[in-house]
C-alpha cells in the first residue's frame, strides 16, 4: 500500500499543476487561448476595426496609433498596413490610411459580430459587464457569417449593443453617429446616456460601478476642471472630467423628463405600502426584463408589498391581482412613486 503521507503530497502536487494549467483567466490554457487570438487573422481584423473606428470618429489613423492599440511594434504595424493594402482593404495617403469599400464592409462585418456578441452576453447570459468586451474580442474572429445571423435571429435582431452603439446590418448599413459628450451639458440641462465607451476597460469598470447604464436620465448640476457633478436617475454622482469623456448623451424633450428628484425604488417599499411604477431601469435587461413586464410590471402599475420571505429576501408583491416574489436586487431596479 502506498504510504498515506507520500500519497497526499503527490496529490497536492497534481492538484497544483492542474490549477496552474486550467484556472480561468490566469491559467496556461487560458493564456494559450489568448495568445492564439493574437495570430494573423485576428491582427488583420483588429487593425481594420481600429481604422474604421477612427474614421467614424474623424480622427487620423497612423502607424503609431495602430501599433498602440494592437500592442505591436511600429515595424510590425507598418508591415501589417502594407499587407492590408496589398489585400485591397485600404489605401495609404499623406494624412494616414483610408479604408477601401471592401475594407469598409469587412470592418463593419467584424463590428457587427462584436456588438451582437456583446448584446447577446448582456441579454442572454450572466456574464458580468466588465467581461463583455474581452469575450467579444475573441468571438468576433471565430464566428462565421452564418453563425452570426443565427445568433442575431435568436436574440431578436437587436440594433443597438449594450453600450448604446448601433449594430451594423448584415449588408453593412449603419446610422450616423448621434449625441455629444456629457461635458457639453449646461447646468440644469437634462439628457439621456446614449453610449458608454467600453475602452479603456478600467474606466468602463469605474463607470459601471457607479451604476451608470445606457438609457439612464442625467441632469448636469455643475462642473469644474477637477470634477463633474450630475444627477443620474435623481441620484448625485461626482466624476473626474476625464472619465466623463467615455459618456455620450443625447438631449431629451421636456415631456420625457420624468425624473427630477431622487427616485424611490421598489426595494424601499415597506410591507403593506402601495406605490405606482414609474419605470424599469434600463440596466435590467434580457429575459429578466421581459419576464417582469409579462407579469404586469409596467409604468403605471400599482404594486403593494405583501410579505417578506422568512429569510428577508425575496419579497412578495401584489401585482395586478397576482402575488409575485421579486429579489431585492431586481426590486431595486424598479422605480416607483409612493
Amino acid at each position: 500500500m502506498i504510504d498515506p503521507g507520500k500519497a497526499l503530497i503527490l496529490f497536492g502536487i497534481t492538484a497544483a499543476v492542474l490549477t496552474v494549467l486550467f484556472i480561468p483567466k490566469y491559467g496556461l490554457f487560458a493564456q494559450w487561448k489568448r495568445a492564439r487570438h493574437g495570430m494573423n487573422r485576428a491582427l488583420v481584423e483588429d487593425a481594420l476595426k481600429h481604422i474604421y473606428d477612427y474614421e467614424y470618429k474623424n480622427i487620423n489613423c497612423t502607424t503609431e496609433s495602430i501599433a498602440g492599440v494592437l500592442l505591436i511594434s511600429t515595424d510590425e504595424s507598418a508591415e501589417l498596413l502594407t499587407r492590408l493594402s496589398a489585400m485591397g482593404l485600404l489605401i495609404t495617403n499623406d494624412n494616414g490610411v483610408k479604408l477601401t469599400a471592401d475594407g469598409n464592409s469587412y470592418a463593419l462585418r467584424i463590428i457587427r459580430v462584436h456588438r451582437l456578441w456583446e448584446r447577446y452576453l448582456a441579454d442572454e447570459t450572466s456574464v458580468p459587464p466588465t467581461e463583455w468586451h474581452s469575450s467579444a474580442e475573441l468571438a468576433e474572429h471565430t464566428l462565421s457569417p452564418a453563425e452570426t445571423e443565427t445568433l442575431a435571429a435568436q436574440i431578436g435582431n437587436p440594433n443597438f449593443d449594450p453600450h448604446g452603439d448601433p449594430i451594423p446590418t448584415p449588408t453593412g448599413e449603419m446610422p450616423p453617429r448621434k449625441g455629444h459628450s456629457l461635458l457639453s451639458l449646461k447646468s440644469g440641462e437634462f439628457a439621456i446616456i446614449t453610449h458608454i465607451e467600453d475602452e479603456p476597460e478600467a474606466v468602463f469598470a469605474q463607470l459601471i460601478a457607479q451604476g451608470l447604464y445606457v438609457g439612464m436620465q442625467v441632469r448636469m448640476i455643475d462642473r469644474s476642471n477637477e470634477r463633474v457633478r450630475f444627477a443620474a436617475d435623481g441620484e448625485e454622482i461626482v466624476l473626474a472630467p476625464l472619465l466623463t469623456n467615455n459618456l455620450t448623451v443625447a438631449p431629451i424633450t421636456e415631456e420625457e423628463q420624468r425624473i427630477t428628484a431622487p427616485l424611490d425604488s421598489l426595494a424601499s417599499l415597506k410591507i403593506g405600502e402601495e406605490a405606482h411604477v414609474l419605470s424599469i431601469s434600463k440596466a435590467m435587461r434580457g429575459q429578466q426584463r421581459r419576464r417582469l413586464m409579462d407579469l404586469g410590471v409596467v409604468p403605471g402599475t400599482t404594486i403593494r408589498a405583501e410579505m417578506k420571505s422568512a429569510s428577508g429576501d425575496p419579497t412578495a408583491y401584489a401585482i395586478r391581482g397576482a402575488t409575485v416574489a421579486l429579489r431585492r436586487q431586481h426590486a431595486a431596479m424598479i422605480f416607483i412613486r409612493k
Binding site: P24, S126, R291, A322, A325, R327
Partner: peptide
C-alpha cells in the same frame, strides 16, 4: 457552476405564489 461553466447561460428570477 454558476460562476464558471454556466456563466454563459441566461439567468432570471420570477416566482409566482399561487393562491
Amino acid at each position: 457552476l454558476s460562476r464558471t461553466l454556466l456563466k454563459g447561460e441566461a439567468s432570471s428570477f420570477s416566482l409566482e405564489l399561487p393562491p
